[in-house]
Amino acid sequence: MTTPVLRVQDLTVDFTSYTGGLLQRKERVLRAVNGISFDLNASETLGIVGESGSGKSTLARAILGLIKPNRGRVMWQGEDLTLLDEEELRQKRKEIQIVFQDPVASLNPRMTAGDIISEPLWTFYPNMAPLQVEERARGMMKMVGLLPNQINRYPHQFSGGQCQRIGIARSLVLNPKLVICDEPVSALDVSIQAQIINLLKDLQKKLGLALIFIAHDLSLVKHISDRILVMYMGSSMELSERDALYRRPLHPYTNALIKSVPIPDPKLAARVRQDNWLTGDIPSPYDPPKGCIFNTRCLYKVSRCETDVPALRRMEHGDWVACHRAEELDLTICQDP
C-alpha cells in the first residue's frame, strides 16, 4: 500500500459574518466545511459531489490554502500545508493547481491565451527566456487540443469549451502533481462536457496526475472518478468506491442524487418519474437541523435521526458512510433498462 500524496484530516472552515450596527454587532457563524477527512493516492481521482452550498468549492480552496481552515490538517506529501506561511505556500502552488468552474470568468479578458498560460512560468521561472516560455505555451495549447497559432487571441475570441482548455493548460503548465477541478464542465454545453472530461482523463493518464473532481451531480463524475465523496451541507455523507456507490449507495442522500439525474429515454423517464427524488430545499446553513443534517429531506428518517448525529463510519467492505441505518437499508439501484 502506497502512502497517499494528500491526506485531509478533519478539515473545518467557518465563515463569520456580522450583522447589526456598530454597537449591537452580532456574529453569525456558517460552518461551510465540517470535519472532512480523506486520502488521495498518486494518479487517483476522487470525485466530490454535492448540491450548491454543500461546501465542496470551499473545501477545494481550503486544500489549496486560498482559505485558511479553522481546524484540521492538509498533509501534502507528509507536510502540513495549513502550517506554512504565505511564501512557503506559494511555492507549493507549483504542485497543486486548480481548474475553475466558469471558463470565461476565470480568464483575464485583457490577456492573450499565450500570456494566460505563460503567467505561472513568469511567476516561478522569471529568468526563463521569453522564446522558451512561448514555446512551452504553444506546447501546452497543443496538448489540450487548441491550435498553437491562436496564441495571440483573447478569451472572448474562444468558445466556452476552448476557454476551459486554456484554463486546463494554465493549470498544467507547471507540471503539478495534483489538480483540483472545481466543476470544470457545469458551465458548458452537454455536447462539449464530455470532450473536457475525456481530455482530463487522457492528461491524467499521460502525466500521472492525482485529480480531485468536483461536480454538483453524479452523472459525469462516474466516468472519471475512482472513489467518490458525497457532501451535504459541509459534511461527508458517504465516501465509496465508484462501482459500489453506483450499484448500491449506502446513504439515502447518495441514492436521491443518483435518482435525480434525468434519463434521456422517453419510456424510461416516464417510468422512473416517481417520488424518488428529494423534496424540499437545503435548510438554512445558519441554522442546521439537529441530529443528522439530512433528516429534513430523508425518506428513511427514524426518530433517532433527529437527535443523534451519525458519525462517518467504516462499513465492512471498506466504504465510509454517515447514516444510522446504513446496515438495514438496501438502496440497490436496479440497472436493467
Binding site: I98, E119, R170
Partner: peptide, 15 residues
C-alpha cells in the same frame, strides 16, 4: 475568478 486563478497560480500581489 481570474484573480483567484492568478492567486492559485502563485502570482504575487504586485503582479
Amino acid at each position: 475568478e481570474f484573480v483567484e486563478a492568478a492567486r492559485a497560480c502563485g502570482v504575487d500581489h504586485h503582479a
